[in-house]
Structure formats: structure tokens, C-alpha cells
Write a protein that binds this DNA or RNA. Structure first.
Lengths: 344, 344
DNA sequence: GTGAAAGCGCTAACAG
DNA sequence: CTGTTAGCGCTTTCAC
């Protein structure tokens, strides 16, 4: 555990050159005679030497690492998105440092500062506090301080902050869902899942109501079911409650995400209801789950590749001083599978 | 992007104390008078100062970060395990730095060195090259060099390396599966999925064959289907091929993991076969998918909490100089759900 | 081209 | 208790 650490000094010594020269061949941004270069490189290979990133970072060069703060990596939505970011970053020779905060506020901030201290070059924050309907002022202040130091890209809003936003087109998505559903004759539509102070959810719900309005369907508060989270279980229990309490079930259910949809389907099935014969189900996210469930889920796709690219491009764009729009929108597309049916 | 950086010097200056004193209140491992402490802390709060981890790491103190190398975070097995590690680490005030290498050899090593350079305190490597049947000598050498620097814990083997191993009880798991299946009268059992040079897969297969032997069932090479990976698609295509080519289908299928099992089920269903009426399916990993598929999957659980704990405990144990076993085994438990049936 | 030397921000002796 | 003083390993002027 404590063999003599090798440093550029050791290498320099053995190669009979100065540490500066070793540094030069390492960074490749200065000319070194071919002869010395060879010698140094062979030593580097021999010891499998990799320069201490801490020391490097200290001299305030770049770490070529982008930090990504993720609410819950077990959610296929985030896992998939993280992988797309990884790919996009890799193409530009950047690595990602993933940090999971388990949807916990305290942990979120703790991880955030840990990463910031780690000398990441840019920060991407997914979900969480940057996606709250009412932005916390003190939190915003703290984030803005970080914005002074490095590019911060968020998938939510955070009113009045200096972050760059890359948002999903929630409204457009809801429009497509409702258009699809109503084209099939559904008028008794309900929305299940989510937390009311999450901005993306709030937008969906508001849009949902206004479309209902436009369609001349009277809004009934039972149409929107707040579950407080985005899990499979929450969908399951919400649907159970609905079946057990309501006289008339909706003909279509919009799930806040695939996970919740799976729970809804499970509940429906246990109550001997057919999907889509008795109830149609649509959801958001189009994770791999949507294609593998029974029936396969009609779900809203987000163009993850573009999403990942945009997130990374934005971060690096700001970093490199390019002009980058403060807010960008990722389009959505409804992927139609087998979970919806025309009203007969 | 470049407001004057605050450092302990700035804080020290404004507080009228020395940088060392600021450092002392930061690290909390020396006594400071209440008065100065107050002053410093208020400044820290005011500037929302967080010490530069690079500089800290340079002084060779600990970063309290454990690096985790993951093959594919989209696989719920790894996502779940990562979260358990995160929890275990959090309890000891450590953070995780997750790095995904997309099952790519080159990326795996690149990420590895990136993390090592990042001054992580310990390294956990999941799957990948440390889980190859035939360990690559050069790779082993390089890993051993890292072992000299920090604790390295792996979930595979890597013959002759100085890594600490935490392995799943593959053999015990296979025993349970086969005992269960044969107790239900199955004798025509097939194993689908995986890659032959992955050690954990190899162990399962070998055990499978030897149990077949013991049960007096003649081994036929069709009983083991190599797909080369662990994806849903691979299970789907393998089952398709089997159905379309074989006269007699096995009565039971063992899938290498839940994902592959889902693919198998999908194929079976498309061919109008009932599960478990026509074919029983068992799998390994018991991810959340097992509980939500239709039918719900009987799957091998690994005690993820214990797995995560052991991984972290081992890393920190070595780090703190405690005596730690070189190799530990995580027990398995078959979770029985609805995907298997007695032979009638 | 190349070496010497000055930091980067922090911690850890070492004196007081 | 607290300030002073060395570094940690690397990059980067600045001379030569």
C-alpha cells in the first residue's frame, strides 16, 4: 500500500532531464527533443505512470471531467440519459463523474459541493431542487456562486439563476398525448403520479387541464392523482385506490412515467381489467421498460441522444466561451405501441 | 466565470487569523478558541466556501471518495448495487464516484486511470476484465500497481492479483435453482445467455453441467446457449432461434439474468407459449424487473444490501489497515414467484 | 530546447 | 491555542 510513489521527479531523474521536461512531454504543449521525449515516454510506460490529477488540477488546468448530479440512477430514465451524456462527453474526450443523491435534498447539496471541490470543469444537475416549482432563494444564491466558477446546466428551471437550461418539451408532449387519446374518443382521462412541486410535473398537469378545457370536458379534481413520487409502487397503489373507490373508471390513464405505468398496469391486471380493452394507458419517458412490458406501452420519447448531446454541448460550449442559448428545448415524440385503444 | 476565488487565505485575512487556523476549523482536528472559530465559520458561511479538494488531496489526506467502475449502469443489477454501495458509503461519510464504461475494454481502463488520478481513496471494480476466465497478465500487472497505492475490491476474480474479492455465490445459486427445478420434475432444462469467457457465467455453466450429471441427465450442447451478452435482446433472439429450430423445447429455461429472461418471455409469448404452463423460466439477479414482469419472475436474489456493505467495508477496512479476508462470498436466495410450474 | 523557480490551496509539523 | 514554514506533484513563466 505504500511503495514509493512515482512522480515526474522520479521520471525526470531516471531520464536525466528536468521535471519541466517531463511535464512537457506529458502535456504535449511544448517542443521537446525527440531523443529526450523517447526516453521519458519509455519510463512513463515502464512505470505505468499517470500524473496526479490533484496536482494538475491545482495548477488550475482542466480536469476534463464533467460532474453529473442524478436523483436516482435506478430509474431507467436517468440511467439512459446518463449513458447518452457519457457517450457525448466521450466523443469530446471528457469523462463524467456521476453522483447519485437518492432524491434527498441534503444529500443533493452535499454531493454537489463534493463534486465542485473535485475540480470538475462543468456541472450538470438533473431533477431535484433545480426542478422545483418555487425556487428556493438561498439555494439559488449558492448555485449562482457555482455558476461564477464553472458552467452549470440544469434540466429544470431555477428562476433567475445563471444556469443554462435544457428542458424537455413537456407541453408539446402533453399535447401529443391528449391529441392521440382524444382522437381515439377518450374523454374520461385521468393523470396519475408525480409530485405537485416538481416543475415538469406541474407543467404537464396545467397543460392537461387546459386541454381538457379546450375539449369542453369539465375538470374534476379526481382526474389528477398526486402520489408524491415517481415509483412503480405509487402507480400501483394509486390505481388500487381508484378502482376500489370510484364508481366509474376513466377510459384512459396517463402515467407520469413508465415506472408508474407499470404499477398501474399491475393493479389493473389484478383487478381483472384488460389493457387496453378496458383502460388505455399512456406514459412518459419511453424507457426500455415501455417496449418490454405487457402490453407494450405507448410512451412519450424524448430523443435521448439529442438530450445528452445538448447537455454536454452546452456545458462545453460555455466552458470554451462560445455563445450558447440560455434555454433549449428537446422535442418529444409519442411512440405508439399496444396499450391504447379506440373507445368502442 | 472568474470572480475572485476565495481560499483559506482570504478567509483567514478577513477573520484576522492565520490560514492554519482556518484549516483547523475546517478539518476539526485541532482545538481553536471558540471566538475565532465563530468568526471563521461565519465567513465560511458568508462566502459559502468549500475547500479545494485538489489542494486537499495533494497534501495526501483522504478524499473520502471511493471510485466505482461499472460495466453498464442501465442494467438494473448494477444500478441497484451502485445504490447500495452509495448507501453503505454514505453511512461512513464517504461518497462514491461512479464511472460507466459501457462494457468497453478500452474505456474501462481509461476510466480506471482517470479515477486513480482523481485521488480516490479506494477502487471498486465491477464485472469487466476482473471477471474474465483467463486473466490478462499485463492487465493484472497494471492492477497490481494500483493495489500498491490503494485498496482495490473486485466482484470477479483476477487470478494472482492483490485485489480483494467479493463474489456472489454462483455455485450455491445454481444449486438452488436446479434443486428447485428438479423438485418440480423438470429434466429438460436449458440455460440461455451470457458470454463464455466471463467467469461468473462460466462457473454457473460448469455447475449446471455437473448437476445435470449428478441427476443422471445426459448433457447435450444445445442445453447451454451462448449469446455473448446479457441483454434483453439476446434472450429474445436466442429463444426465437430455439423455438424455430428445435423439435422439442425444454420444459424449463434458466436465464443468465432478469433482462435476458424478459427477452425469453417476450419470444415465448409471441410464439403463443404460456409461462409457466408450457415453459418454466428462472433467472438470476432478482432486480426490480423480476417483480414487475408478467408473469412475475422466479429469480435468484443476492442480498444486495449485504453485497454493497461488504464491498464498502472491505475497501475501507483495507484502507484503515484492518485485517480483511482476501475473498468473501455473498449468499444467494431464490425468490419464488410465478414463472415456474410443476411438470404435469 | 531546457532547466530553475515560483506558485496552485491546503495540511501538518514545529515552535512559541 | 496559534502563527510560521514547508512541502504535496504538477504546470508555467522566465532566463539561458
Amino acid at each position: 500500500m505504500d511503495r514509493e510513489k512515482i512522480s515526474i521527479y522520479r521520471i525526470a531523474n531516471e531520464a536525466g532531464v528536468s521535471p519541466a521536461t517531463v511535464s512537457r512531454v506529458l502535456t504535449q504543449n511544448a517542443n521537446v527533443s525527440e531523443e529526450k521525449k523517447q526516453k521519458v515516454e519509455s519510463l512513463i510506460l515502464k512505470y505505468n505512470f499517470s500524473p496526479n490529477a490533484m496536482a494538475r488540477g491545482l495548477t488550475s488546468s482542466r480536469s476534463r471531467i464533467i460532474g453529473v448530479l442524478i436523483p436516482d440512477i435506478r430509474n431507467p430514465f436517468y440511467a439512459g440519459l446518463a449513458v447518452e451524456c457519457e457517450r457525448a462527453a466521450g466523443e469530446r474526450d471528457y469523462s463524467l463523474m456521476l453522483s447519485n443523491y437518492m432524491n434527498d435534498r441534503k444529500m443533493e447539496e452535499q454531493r454537489l459541493y463534493k463534486m465542485v471541490g473535485q475540480q470538475i470543469d462543468a456541472l450538470i444537475i438533473m431533477g431535484g431542487r433545480v426542478d422545483e416549482v418555487i425556487s428556493n432563494e438561498a439555494y439559488k444564491e449558492r448555485i449562482n456562486q457555482i455558476c461564477d466558477t464553472m458552467p452549470v446546466v440544469i434540466t429544470g428551471k431555477l428562476e433567475g439563476s445563471n444556469c443554462y437550461q435544457v428542458n424537455l418539451d413537456e407541453m408539446g408532449g402533453m399535447d401529443q398525448v391528449m391529441k392521440y387519446l382524444s382522437s381515439m374518443g377518450h374523454r374520461d382521462i385521468c393523470m396519475i403520479g408525480g409530485k405537485k412541486d416538481v416543475d415538469s410535473t406541474c407543467i404537464k398537469r396545467t397543460r392537461f387541464r387546459s386541454i381538457l378545457d379546450r375539449l369542453g370536458i369539465e375538470f374534476c379534481s379526481d382526474y389528477i392523482v398526486e402520489t408524491g413520487d415517481y415509483s412503480l409502487e405509487s402507480g400501483y397503489w394509486a390505481m388500487n385506490r381508484m378502482i376500489e373507490s370510484r364508481k366509474k373508471l376513466p377510459t384512459a390513464v396517463i402515467a407520469i412515467n413508465d415506472l408508474t405505468a407499470l404499477g398501474i398496469i399491475q393493479s389493473l391486471r389484478e383487478h381483472a381489467m384488460g389493457i387496453p380493452e378496458d383502460v388505455s394507458v399512456v406514459s412518459f419517458d419511453n424507457t426500455f421498460l415501455a417496449g418490454t412490458s405487457v402490453p407494450r406501452l405507448t410512451s412519450m420519447d424524448y430523443g435521448y441522444e439529442q438530450f445528452g448531446n445538448t447537455l454536454i454541448e452546452t456545458a462545453l460550449g460555455v466552458l470554451e466561451g462560445r455563445e450558447v442559448p440560455k434555454k433549449q428545448i428537446i422535442p418529444t415524440e409519442l411512440i405508439i405501441r399496444d396499450s391504447c385503444q379506440k373507445i368502442t
